[in-house]
Design a protein around this nucleic acid. Structure first.
Lengths: 363, 363
DNA sequence: CTGTTAGCGCATTCAT
DNA sequence: ATGAATGCGCTAACAG
């Protein structure tokens, strides 16, 4: 069917191994035969067979990306970035969707390794630590967005503590003191860290943390609906809601829409992780940007280095953070203009808002 | 590193070929050894090496899906559906993003074939017909969403003529007579067909087609912005706009937002292809649903059959259509309540609105 | 610098 | 029903 190395060698009247050497550019052939072979190969339309090569070398030129879904805009961006970067390097991306389900994740992981993937970028569920750890011996792995605490895998995380802090402080600076928080499951890295950032901002502003204002739940629209109702039904409802659970955003909007709550007049709304339509929504929704593009790029960088290093020495850095950024649009308003921001709120540090600030951080 | 067939055979004290036969379930082994080998293989944690198998069989258990991007909600759905279906059958999905760029498409196609993919579902740019045609000799291919006119490949299409017709008729029934259309490039299947559906509905209602009301352009938000401005700047602007170019929707919304045009009070808006947030937008956006899920499922069905058939006989059907469906929400309003819908407008045929109506259609 | 040889792990033909 | 032998296409020791 297709032309093989043998055909090329035959046509060039050299041995098959000379052909191999010439075409893989090992530099172990004379300049002349090198060029001659390259030409002949091109003329014949020779394309190396990655399967055969893989059987010999144990590599596949396949790199897998395992994410929870493609509905989340961050995952979309990551998939596009990873695919583009890898393709440029001659790798193909195997995109897998795990649905944040440990069972699926586990199954997928094994078949991926079966396929002898050369590398893996995974958003772990956190429930397959042991397996992940075991696989890491065979293939370079970097975790993305979430950490799997049962492993010591290299991990690229958003700076969620900082992002949630920035967002909350923004609301405080606008005069809000009762700020509802809808946040993700507390058994996930981002869920915990965003809560902690929120708490820190509150503390700095001397605002007592009120647990009735905090709603943690699964990464689903329904969580947002439930949370929003709970918060709005409070005897003293919040003047602002910080939706730090991206998936929950739609649910929150449904409730405010149902109840005819005007944003930002009746309620300020700040969300987490950008989506294209946030900007076009009326009012445009202010957000904390988690830097999905930077996250993906960094993950690829780290993976490539591991793939090159071939298990040599890692430099000891196990965790990387990508800066978050506050993007003010029109869904948050100033209230209580009489009272100025508390003096206890420190002024913005210039570095805090730079999304390009990618700093390795040993944790 | 990993346990091979040889190891299993050795442990079971049989030849390697017996082990192979037993484990692949060819039925050429005794029931007893069959079970014994299966057990031993499991105990040893044996996993067949797809690379080695592939070298022998010429198959890879890899199926590729080539789409333009992951921003388009339809492509997201398709990617998720295809991945899920394939995984259930033991295939891995290779997701490629071509950016609707012929060069990228061409490159991607060749590397995919290099990797000996077992099948391909592609949303063609339409500019690589010859290549696609050539590849089709080696690997089963089905086109999705768009047809490549230079080939006679099996193609799964949305019923865009019908969808655009339904949408336009809906607006007409609401009393609109000047209906703007923002539609895709006319060198694409969907672009042409949606325009034709619009024209047909107009004709049936005895409304003269007005070319100043039609704006065709690239699948980008910018097209929507340009088109909307053009339409709204008309001396007699339309009372409704049908955005049949999905990507253009955001651009249209930006313009209506900028100009403070109330929807549906000042302008009715009907869009094409659903997105999660359309439903939560205020007002909720009425749409024509192209049935992305059905499209993907049908494409997988077709591909699988081709992969099984192994180039035997195809049944002669080259083109399949998946029904479109009108979903009324809140972005279109009745105008001119005095004048009832023209008698010339035929009543809805029940079959027309069933998205599950998947009917093969020889074209 | 080049040719010869030997597998990578598996499926399969040919014997038995 | 099973074993021995062959080769898929390629790379890499090992010789010259």
């Amino acid at each position: 069917m297709s032309v093989t190395l043998k055909d090329v060698a035959h046509a060039a009247r050299v041995s098959i191994s000379t052909a191999s050497r010439a075409l893989t550019g090992t530099g172990l052939t004379s300049e002349r035969t090198q060029q001659r072979l390259t030409r002949i190969a091109r003329e014949l339309g020779y394309r190396p067979n990655p399967i055969a090569r893989g059987l010999k070398t144990g590599q596949s030129r396949l790199v897998a990306l395992l994410v929870h879904n493609l509905t989340n805009a961050s995952f979309q961006v990551m998939a596009e970035v990873v695919q583009a970067r890898l393709k440029a390097l001659g790798y193909q991306m195997l995109l897998c969707i795990g649905g944040d389900d440990p069972k699926q994740e586990s199954d997928t992981l094994t078949t991926l390794v079966d396929h002898r993937i050369d590398g893996l970028i995974v958003v772990p569920t956190g429930k397959n630590g042991p397996q992940l750890k075991a696989l890491a011996k065979d293939v370079p792995i970097v975790c993305l967005v979430r950490r799997d605490d049962a492993t010591d895998l290299e991990t690229v995380l958003a700076d969620d503590p900082q992002g949630a802090y920035l967002g909350t402080r923004h609301l405080i600076e606008l005069g809000h003191r009762r700020i509802g928080l809808i946040v993700g499951r507390q058994d996930t890295t981002s869920g915990r860290e965003r809560l902690s950032g929120y708490v820190r901002a509150l503390r700095e502003a001397d605002i007592a943390k009120d647990d009735t204002l905090i709603h943690a739940g699964h990464f689903e629209p329904e969580t947002g609906a439930t949370g929003a109702r709970k918060l709005l039904d409070l005897s003293r409802p919040p003047s602002a809601i910080f939706v730090a659970n991206h998936e929950a955003t739609l649910g929150v909007l449904r409730v405010t829409s149902e109840r005819n709550i005007a944003i930002p007049d009746d309620l300020s709304l700040l969300c987490y992780e950008d989506m294209p339509w946030f900007e076009w929504h009326r009012p445009a929704i202010s957000i904390v940007d988690n830097g999905a593009r930077d996250l993906a790029n960094l993950a690829v960088d780290r993976l490539l280095q591991r793939m090159d290093a071939k298990g040599n020495g890692n430099d000891g850095v196990r965790e990387y953070r990508v800066g978050a950024r506050l993007i003010k649009r029109d869904s948050c308003r100033q209230i209580d203009p009489a009272s100025k921001p508390k003096p206890s709120i420190p002024k913005s540090k210039s570095s805090a808002a730079k999304s390009s600030a990618v700093k390795p951080a040993k944790v």
